[in-house]
């Protein structure tokens, strides 16, 4: 079977499995929207200075939740599902067939990216309708490139971290502990305006802040030019390469013993 045919087939089956677990599917979509609504209720009357002229915080939250959606759909989702499939012996069973390793991973990753894309569309539409945010026009290419680089990075990191998680029971704990603290210090849940300098420096090491910043810039109605932030894209690409290397090093088909 050719590469494209095999990948499309894997994606189709991943997709069937995804939608047939309605609770999981519902919350994948409900979660980011819930955050968007809650943060707007809590901080919506504040103003945000990160965009230059003072704007309503709502304009900050839509792109921030767009970034959050991609992180959930790619990093969290892949880390969890790959660990569970490995722990339940599903991967070991696939290993006994002629399906190549890339075939499984391509299906898994492409499906995550499709879900992420759908989520981004929903969140942006929600922001447009309820919070009156501007949809990027001149910066649209920058928005799409940033999303793509971010999705690739967080997919690679998702596969990589699944290789470090010992078993399915530990997956939610490890995934949340690795991502939640960073979400709070990376301009996703709250704008990091009055934080200590060392914290800002620390958060700059990780890809989340750069991803959020790239998306914010592309979304900012006052951005001049095309909206590409080279530093952010480069930092993400480095993490993407690191994630890939780690994924190749630590990915296994068999449940971990003990």
């Amino acid at each position: 079977m050719n590469v494209i045919g095999l990948t499309v087939r894997q994606v189709r089956y991943e997709n069937k499995s995804f939608w047939r677990n309605p609770f999981s599917a519902f919350f994948t979509f409900a979660f980011p929207l819930m955050f968007l609504v809650i943060f707007n209720l809590l901080f919506g009357h504040d103003t945000y200075r990160g965009f230059g002229p003072k704007v309503s915080t709502s304009t900050f939250y839509t792109p921030a939740i767009v970034a959050f959606s991609v992180i959930t759909a790619c990093y969290t989702n892949i880390a969890m599902t790959v660990t569970i499939a490995r722990d339940h012996g599903i991967l070991k069973r696939l290993r006994g067939t002629p399906l190549p390793t890339w075939g499984y991973l391509a299906g898994r990753i492409l499906h995550a990216i499709l879900i992420a894309a759908l989520l981004v569309v929903i969140v942006v539409a929600f922001g447009r309708v309820f919070y009156d945010v501007d949809i990027p026009t001149t910066t649209l290419p920058a928005f799409i490139v940033s999303l793509t680089v971010g999705a690739a990075t967080f997919c690679a990191l998702g596969v990589a971290v699944s290789g470090l998680i010992p078993n399915a029971e530990a997956a939610p704990a490890v995934v949340n502990a690795s991502i939640l603290p960073l979400l709070f210090i990376s301009d996703i849940f709250i704008p990091l305006e009055n934080a200590p300098k060392w914290l800002v420096t620390f958060s700059n090491i990780f890809p989340i802040k750069h991803f959020a910043h790239a998306i914010l810039t592309a979304f900012n109605p006052f951005t001049k030019g095309a909206g590409f932030v080279v530093t952010d894209l480069v930092v993400m690409a480095v993490w993407c390469a690191g994630g890939l290397a780690m994924a190749l090093r630590f990915f296994t088909w068999e449940p971990r013993m003990g």
């Binding site: 095999l6 089956y13 069937k16 499995s17 012996g89 991967l91 070991k92």
Partner: peptide, 24 residues
């Protein structure tokens, strides 16, 4: 294998079809 591990949300026909597709 000794222990089972199957995609829980697929049907019997779908699981068999999925695996059939891997073979020449």
């Amino acid at each position: 294998l000794q222990s089972t591990g199957l995609q829980p949300y697929l049907t019997v026909d779908e699981v068999i079809e999925l695996f059939r597709g891997y073979y020449p």
